[in-house]
């Protein structure tokens, strides 16, 4: 029968493929994004952030950057930036999702927590010339985003996506560049849900208030490399200060510097390195950057 009737065959094949489809794809609509997933703090995108998101899509950033922190310790440590793993409720305003499938570059789900600086100076420098901030990076330059933002459809987008907006939000788009929009989007990513405070991050190390490395000889080999890799892009090759302040001969106490490197400073964009560097390396760095001369 089957071997002889293509019409019946096609109907049967359709039914067979619809079984798994119904159970694993259609039925979950009942639960996913339902009340159980909802997170009150998660806010929709503003017109500027949504424009930035659309530019992220236009440039295909999702081909190299994922946007989901998995429930793995190393993932949370590396990409959580003090926050936690990704929750379903954080993505309810994402049409489409931008979770990605390959991390040629780092995950960006919580990048807003890493560089909270309101002017987005780090992002601008990085997008214009990634190698100026991360020398070994293989990311292309996006200096061409320094072009006026096309706002023709901004309001219609808000309506279509059913996001709240005010006239002030729309006025805010005036004179903005594409660069401004994509930075606004970067700064929003992952910042909606509450995060662990810097103090909590460093609590484990608080017991060790005394720097175990006090001489240059003890730290030079390790600390110089660490500095070049993680600090030089913002504080200058010679600790003279560029995006961030000069560090040469800092008068802050060792414990204070440890706390800043480990926990970061939210307000001015200094990232937290507690996930990237272990305590030993942070202490070595403290000794290294405080020295007057190398």
């Amino acid at each position: 029968m089957l071997e002889k009737n293509p019409v019946i065959f096609i109907i049967l094949a359709f039914v067979v493929i619809m079984v798994g489809t119904t159970i694993t794809m259609i039925a979950p609509f009942k639960w996913i994004n339902g009340p159980g997933d909802r997170i009150a703090e998660v806010k929709p995108y503003t017109p500027l952030q949504q424009e930035g998101r659309d530019l992220y899509m236009r440039e295909g950033c999702n081909n190299c950057h994922s946007q989901t922190v998995r429930t793995l310790a190393a993932d949370v440590e590396r990409y959580g930036y003090g926050g936690t793993y990704s929750k379903s409720g954080e993505f309810v305003y994402d049409r489409p999702h931008l979770w990605g499938s390959r991390r040629t570059g780092p995950d960006l789900a919580r990048i807003g927590l890493k560089y909270p600086d309101s002017k987005g100076a780090w992002h601008k420098k990085h997008l214009e010339n990634p190698q100026s901030v991360v020398p070994a990076s293989n990311m292309p330059s996006y200096a061409f985003l320094n072009a006026p933002l096309d706002t023709t459809y901004s309001e219609r987008k808000m309506k279509l996506l059913d996001f709240p907006y005010s006239q002030a939000d729309l006025d805010d788009l005036k004179g903005k560049s594409e660069m401004d929009a994509i930075i606004a989007y970067m700064r929003k990513l992952g910042t909606d849900i509450p995060v662990k405070k810097a103090a909590a991050v460093t609590s484990a190390s608080a017991a060790v208030v005394k720097n175990p490395f006090t001489t240059l000889v003890a730290v030079e080999r390790d600390a110089e490399g660490t500095y070049k890799q993680h600090c030089a892009s913002c504080h200058g090759e010679k600790r003279e200060g560029t995006l961030g302040p000069a560090l040469k001969g800092s008068v802050r106490s060792d414990a204070e510097l440890f706390k800043i490197i480990s926990g970061g400073i939210d307000v001015n964009g200094m990232p937290s390195f507690s996930g990237t560097l272990d305590d030993q390396n942070i202490w070595k760095l403290v000794t290294y950057i405080k020295l007057d001369t190398k």
Binding site: T24, M25, D37, D54, F91, Y93, H97
Partner: peptide, 23 residues
């Protein structure tokens, strides 16, 4: 849902969209 000729937004959002996409 089309916004204009060259742009549309997915009918599904977030985790649902991801599930449909990888199905």
């Amino acid at each position: 849902v089309p916004l204009h000729l060259f742009k549309s937004y997915s009918a599904f959002s977030g985790t649902n969209d991801a599930n449909v996409q990888w199905w």
